[in-house]
Amino acid sequence: MSMAMSLSDKLFILFGGVCGLLVIASLIGFALSRRATSESGRATIDNLNARIKAWWVMIAIFAASFALGRGVTLVLFALTSFYTLREFVSLTPTRAADHLPLVAAFYLLLPLQYWLIAIDWYALFTILIPVYGFLLLPSLAALKGDAGEFLLRVSRIQWGLMLTVYCISHAPALLTLDIPGRPREGFLLLFFLITVAQFSDVMQYVFGKLIGRTKVAPAISPSKTVEGLIGGGLSAVAAGAGLWWITPFTPIEAAAMALAIVAMGFLGGLALSAVKRSMGVKDWGTMISGHGGVLDRMDSLSFAAPVFFHLTRYFFT
């Protein structure tokens, strides 16, 4: 099943499969919306349907960017980083003295990070923000001469950049990996990562709604349950294993990779819930109807992408 198919055949099957799943989900959502009677039931179904609709849009964007190639995909992720960094900074108290570091973050480090990935300069894109950003941002902030909450302010901007630019950029960085005997198959790795991470989120939500009882961390996120984590996580690992034929992995390896993505995604969601809670907000924004902000959908991917990237790079290239 694996070697004979061309890359475009595989992508065609994959996107066809995802569209099929979404058709089924849309039909179920439509049927449920006609049956819901109680107030809270209707709210849940409306939220579900809004999520499904947003999924159609996201799939369309991904399909278009895959079809148009690596450059467009990189631009798409750079825009995602831009938008999520904007959401992050908007909710983070910054002051006038932070202007220069913010200019550097948005207009220098963000484009530079994606340009380094575009020219495949691995040694520099993996240290640009953790090392050079780390040195540059506090220097620029200090030039303004405002010492009030200095460490806190500098840390927030560094953290936002790591989360929204550095981590997220490791997803499209998969396109730069040279896997022996599999030229240009980075798109499939990217598809694998996104599908497993997002499927895990969706299934955790579904299992949590259906059978969720025991809260994992009630003080941080009331919606994350042990049952949701196990049910959703196992579904996503199974889905990942089932996708082994598009990857350089064996089915067992694909399951292990999916497990790593699920674990990191769960931790990302949890850590970001804690950040939101500490800021006193529920969502990062209002960009996507039913989903909150863009960062609300990217938190798991952000944590999973660097780990998946390095695991693949160490063991398979």
């Binding site: 831009f82 960094l85 904007r86 959401e87 900074v89 908007s90 910054t94 002051r95 006038a96 202007h99 913010l102 200019v103 948005f106 207009y107 924004g285």
Partner: peptide, 18 residues
């Protein structure tokens, strides 16, 4: 809300803040 953070007095370039 926020323009004083996005484009404070005395700066030359607005930064993206909602």
């Amino acid at each position: 809300d926020n323009p004083s953070r996005a484009f404070p007095k005395g700066t030359f370039l607005p930064v993206p803040i909602s």
